[in-house]
Computed example of a mutant assay.
Amino acid sequence: MAHTPVTLTNARVVTPDGVHDGRLRVENGRVAALGPDTPSPAAPPTGEVRDLGGAWVVPGLVDTHIHGGAGHAFPDADPEGALATVAFNRRHGVTSLVGGLVAATPDDTLRQVAALAELCDAGELAGIYLEGPFIARSKCGAHDPELLRDPDTAEFDRWLEAGRGHVRMVTVAPELPGALDLIRAAASSGVVAAVGHTEADYERTLAAFDAGATVATHVYNAMRPLNHRDPGPIAAALNDARVTVELIMDNVHVHPGAAALVFSSAGADRVSLVTDAMSATGLGDGEYTLGDLRVRVSGGEARLVENGAIASSTIVLPQAVRNTVEGLGVGVPEAVRSASSVPAAALGLAGAGRIEVGGHADLVVLGRDLTVADVMYRGAWVA
Rank of each mutant, 00 (worst) to 15 (best):
V195G: 10
T217D: 06
N221S: 11
V195N: 06
A236W: 06
D210R: 06
A186C: 15
A185Y: 08
Y202C: 12
N221Q: 10
R184P: 05
H218G: 11
A236Q: 06
D230F: 13
V191A: 11
E199N: 15
P225H: 03
G190A: 10
D230T: 15
H218V: 13
G196T: 13
I248S: 05
Y202M: 13
I183S: 14
V191Y: 07
L247T: 01
L206D: 01
R224S: 09
T244P: 01
N239T: 06
P233R: 10
A193Q: 05
M249P: 11
I248A: 08
T205S: 02
L180T: 11
P231A: 04
L238F: 07
H197S: 06
V191E: 07
L180Q: 12
A194I: 02
A186D: 09
L206K: 03
T205H: 00
T217L: 13
A187T: 05
E199M: 15
D210K: 05
P231S: 02
D230R: 15
S189Q: 10
R204E: 02
A193G: 07
R184S: 15
S188V: 06
A216W: 04
T217K: 14
I183G: 11
D210C: 00
V192A: 15
A241T: 14
N227Y: 01
R229F: 13
P233H: 09
A208G: 14
R204W: 01
A207W: 02
V245Y: 04
R224I: 09
I234K: 04
L247M: 05
I248N: 02
R229P: 14
D181K: 05
P233L: 08
R224W: 08
A186P: 12
V192S: 15
N227M: 02
D210H: 06
N221F: 10
D181W: 02
D230P: 09
T198C: 06
N221P: 10
T214E: 00
L226Q: 14
A193R: 03
P225R: 06
G196I: 12
A241K: 13
A213G: 03
V219D: 00
H218Y: 10
P231Y: 05
L182E: 10
V219E: 00
D210I: 00
A216Y: 01
P225D: 03
A207G: 04
F209G: 04
G212T: 00
G178S: 07
A222N: 08
T244H: 06
Y202G: 12
D210T: 08
L226R: 13
A179W: 11
L206N: 05
F209P: 00
P231C: 01
Y220S: 09
A236R: 08
T244A: 04
S188Y: 02
A222I: 09
H218C: 10
E203T: 12
A222Y: 13
A237Q: 01
A241L: 14
D230S: 15
A185L: 10
L226Y: 15
V195T: 06
E203S: 05
L226C: 12
V192P: 14
T205D: 00
